[in-house]
Design a binder for these strands. Structure first.
Lengths: 125, 125
DNA sequence: CCTCTGATTCGAGAAACGTCAAGACAGCCT
DNA sequence: AGGCTGTCTTGACGTTTCTCGAATCAGAGG
């Protein structure tokens, strides 16, 4: 039995439809809350927030795990666990090329979350 | 010894300085990650995401707990626990007026999170 | 004062999370 | 093939989270 590999995801947030008006515009639906909360939860850990930022701000649009791990005082498996959490939340994508594994952001999901948090008068802030 | 009451907060995210460029613009600092991750974590639960939306979209800018509780299949204390989590994350404010307690959103914190998630080309769809 | 209603805090238990060491897998190189 | 390096998975352990019932606090009103 072949286990799932890098990039395969149990629940598929790949289908990031352009969902959901801002929280302040109308009440979010029960289902949308169930679908989007995991993404916020994934960002709700300082390590993962930093990982997300390192990935999202990577110069070539992607970054090697080998460049992520040494930035933390954590074991390899722990970083791998956090990266998987980000992957399963639909926030990043992973691809193996030869020896190394590269991570990329998923702008669609980030946009969806940003839109949800948008406040009336954001431009004025 | 008087315990803390509604509105008093252990760690004070009230000082919501206009912090932090988008995640994709540069790497978030260690400290900013520590300070903002709790807010994302607070939104990382379906119940709290719905509560946040109900509060943020309340017609008069505020909503009574008595209108929040019946919307969920959860006990009063559980709703109260989630509301406190949102309060301590700096996402909402509470005020007691007579018998009832009213909750208001904190747009500054929401803006801060939205800005952090902003993606280059958000306006471009 | 006592009681009643609404909201929070306290105490406890089940489930999920974050971390690591050990092991497994994937791809290079000799 | 065999060894080496980089990454991920597994198993285990302590901590945190989520939930509830019971108790407590805050006001309104008899």
């Amino acid at each position: 039995m072949t286990k799932q590999r890098t990039g395969t995801i149990p629940v598929d947030p790949t289908s990031a439809e352009p969902c959901c008006a801002p929280l302040s515009a109308r009440r979010i639906s029960h289902e949308a809350a169930d679908r989007l909360a995991p993404a916020f939860r994934a960002l709700g850990d300082p390590v993962r927030l930093r990982l997300m930022s390192m990935i999202a701000s990577a110069p070539g649009g992607e970054i090697c795990v080998c460049d992520l791990t040494p930035a933390f005082d954590l074991s390899g498996p722990t970083i791998s666990y956090h990266l998987r959490t980000l992957r399963e939340a639909g926030l990043v994508d992973a691809e193996r090329r030869g020896t190394w594994v590269y991570y990329r952001p998923r702008p669609a999901m980030l946009r969806q979350l940003a839109r949800l948090l948008a406040v009336d008068g954001t431009t004025g802030g």
